[in-house]
């Protein structure tokens, strides 16, 4: 059976980035070291702080599990958050677009290698967490797959919005910057979002649920720490809420990216950075 051209194109991007990555030997070593340093530093801190997270994810889990899974997820989704713009430069974008690749292939192709790499590093994160810091995983495979799929859709949508805006602004786009800054506080990367009510004002955690990143962390943690069954209506509702963001952001991202490219073409600034 002939492989679809879109898949071939994504493979081409992935191979290109992999070959390129292997030539940066120092980067390869430092990235691997970073995995260990990152997880150890957070793990040690969390062991001493050990905040309870049972309020959100039940009594079967603890803060170290919550945190290390969060860091692993953060590492997994980072390439998608950063989007294609790390790959964008004036020397390549015009040439790549002249090949006639579609927008989804362009976006997915440009993040695929970094995403594969982050999946590879996801495993040592979890292994160190489990064997050194006694992280207790309680994952439901089907839920994990669905959670990852929803997360990927949300983040690819965000990546396309960010890239589309960046093609026009030629710098970090203000919208993504604001979302990222606020997400660091509100998305529950290193603590459960309900603690915002204690730290700041009662009820302020409601804001968190309007950030797509909150749902990425929430659904992945739910799937990996609480063994949720998708047949459970309460779980299903949580997944459906997260899907709403995916359904909105994915086509919106596609539109924004296309708008950005079209506007740059009209202004003749596609190759400018």
């Amino acid at each position: 059976m002939e492989i679809p051209i879109e898949l071939k194109q994504i493979i081409a991007f992935t191979k290109r980035d992999f070959y390129s990555w292997t030539t940066y030997k120092t980067v390869v070593i430092t990235q691997i070291i970073n995995v260990f340093i990152g997880v150890f530093s957070w793990g040690v801190t969390a062991t001493y702080v050990n905040k309870p997270v049972s309020q959100m994810y039940g009594t079967g889990t603890n803060y170290i599990s919550f945190l290390i899974v969060g860091i692993a997820i953060g590492n997994l989704i980072m390439p998608l958050v950063q989007g294609v713009h790390s790959q964008l430069n004036p020397w390549t974008i015009e040439t790549i677009l002249m090949t006639g690749v579609s927008t989804p292939v362009f976006v997915i192709g440009n993040v695929m290698w970094t995403y594969i790499f982050s999946i590879i590093t996801f495993i040592p994160y979890l292994l160190i967490g489990i064997y050194v810091f006694h992280v207790s995983l309680n994952a439901n495979i089907a839920s994990v797959i669905v959670a990852f799929a929803i997360s990927a859709a949300i983040l690819v949508g965000l990546a396309m919005i960010s890239t589309g805006l960046m093609i026009v602004t030629k710098s970090m786009d203000p919208i993504t910057w604001i979302i990222n800054v606020l997400s660091n506080i509100f998305a529950g990367v290193s603590f459960p979002v309900i603690y915002l009510d204690t730290i700041f004002l009662p009820g302020i955690s409601t804001i968190s649920w309007f950030f797509p990143q909150t749902w990425v962390y929430h659904l992945c943690r739910l799937a990996m720490l609480t063994n949720p069954s998708l047949s459970n209506p309460q779980v299903l509702v949580e997944f459906l809420k997260g899907s709403v963001f995916a359904v909105i952001l994915l086509p919106l991202g596609y539109k924004v990216f296309r708008w950005g490219v079209a506007r740059s073409k009209r202004e003749g600034t596609l190759g400018w950075y």
Binding site: A12, Y19, S20, W91, T95
Partner: peptide
Amino acid sequence: SRGFNWRLTGRQNLEFYAL
């Protein structure tokens, strides 16, 4: 707008575009 990756060989760059 060269569009070539400096860390790949000439042949690898062409293989990328061929795909």
